[in-house]
């Protein structure tokens, strides 16, 4: 019986071969190629020369990289909890089957289907000085308009607002799907026990969707570490590099300065950071579930 079982496992493996081939070709191979490039002094147009870990040394000695790393971490720390909290709030508010909630679900999800170009164009209209919406509101209130896109601090904040608005749809939908999986009899039992709404939320709803909260958090950490388009189009990383994320640094070094080796080294560091962040989140959540 055991022998038959083992043999069937091998043949089953063939079914995943097409996917495995695509995975190896499009993800594993580029990953190792990236590591190989990071050990070379190389541009886009020809073979390079082996330099060992020199590119990594140069990356860590580059104050612009360290600033971009700091910006990215701050952005993730602020935007991911915002996305999780707002997504959960909207899902809880819209977890009913009425016409109005269906409309609002569609409305809140609609921003997710837009391209980054459209999203940044819309938020540029909001934040740009002069004729921008915020500027008009500030003037109407008699206050001095803030230059959101060209003031340190505000520029990263503006990118964060645009990002949360753009990315909110997916967390909301995932939370809605999870909420609808909670058995109704748990809520009925709580109602019989006369539990308060807060108690229902903290003792039934949140524990029931804990795995989804973890999933959304990991997805968002991975996504937000890869911030690029919004920063490139809204602030170009400025002012003074205060809104330059890591991916933009990699793009500038690799494609504008043709220093592919250094760009690849920075990419590997970003890969490790994302991997560690996602794994840490996973380990913490798994331990909690086991306890």
């Amino acid at each position: 019986m055991a022998k038959t079982y083992r043999r069937s496992q091998w043949s089953h493996g063939l079914f995943i071969l097409p996917y495995l081939s695509a995975f190896a070709l499009l993800l594993v191979f580029p990953l190792f190629w990236g590591i190989w490039l990071s050990l070379h002094k190389v541009d886009l147009f020809g073979p390079g020369r082996f330099v060992g870990l020199a590119n990594y040394v140069r990356v860590f000695a580059d104050p612009v990289f360290l600033q971009a790393l700091r910006n990215t971490i701050v952005f993730v720390i602020v935007s991911v909890p915002s996305l999780v909290a707002l997504g959960l709030f909207l899902a809880l508010a819209l977890n009913r089957t009425t016409r109005a909630t269906s409309f609002f679900r569609g409305l809140f999800f609609s921003s997710s289907v837009l391209s980054v170009t459209i999203v940044t164009l819309i938020w540029r209209f909001v934040f740009i000085p002069g004729d921008g919406l915020m500027s008009v509101i500030f003037k109407h209130l008699g206050a001095e308009p803030i230059h959101f896109l060209s003031t340190s601090g505000w520029s990263l904040f503006s990118i964060g607002v645009a990002t949360v608005w753009w990315c909110l749809g997916l967390p909301m939908m995932l939370f809605l799907a999870a909420l609808q999986q909670i058995p109704a009899d748990l809520y009925e039992a709580a109602a019989l026990d006369n539990a308060s709404p807060w108690r229902v939320l903290t003792r039934i709803t949140l524990p029931s969707i804990a795995r989804t909260i973890m999933l959304v958090t990991i997805i968002q950490i991975v996504m937000q570490f890869q911030l690029f388009g919004q920063a490139q189009l809204m602030t170009n990383g400025g002012p003074n590099g205060t809104s330059r994320p890591l991916v933009m640094y990699i793009y500038e070094v690799g494609f504008v300065r043709w220093d592919i080796g250094k760009g690849a080294a920075a990419s590997q560091i970003l890969f490790l950071i994302i991997l560690c962040a996602a794994m840490a989140q996973y380990v913490v959540s798994t331990r909690k579930t086991e306890n």
């Binding site: 060209s150 340190s152 990383g237 400025g238 002012p239 003074n240 590099g241 205060t242």
Partner: peptide, 10 residues
């Protein structure tokens, strides 16, 4: 990048 930082007082 750098001159912009100086002009903006950063």
């Amino acid at each position: 990048d750098e001159i912009g930082a100086a002009v903006n007082g950063d």
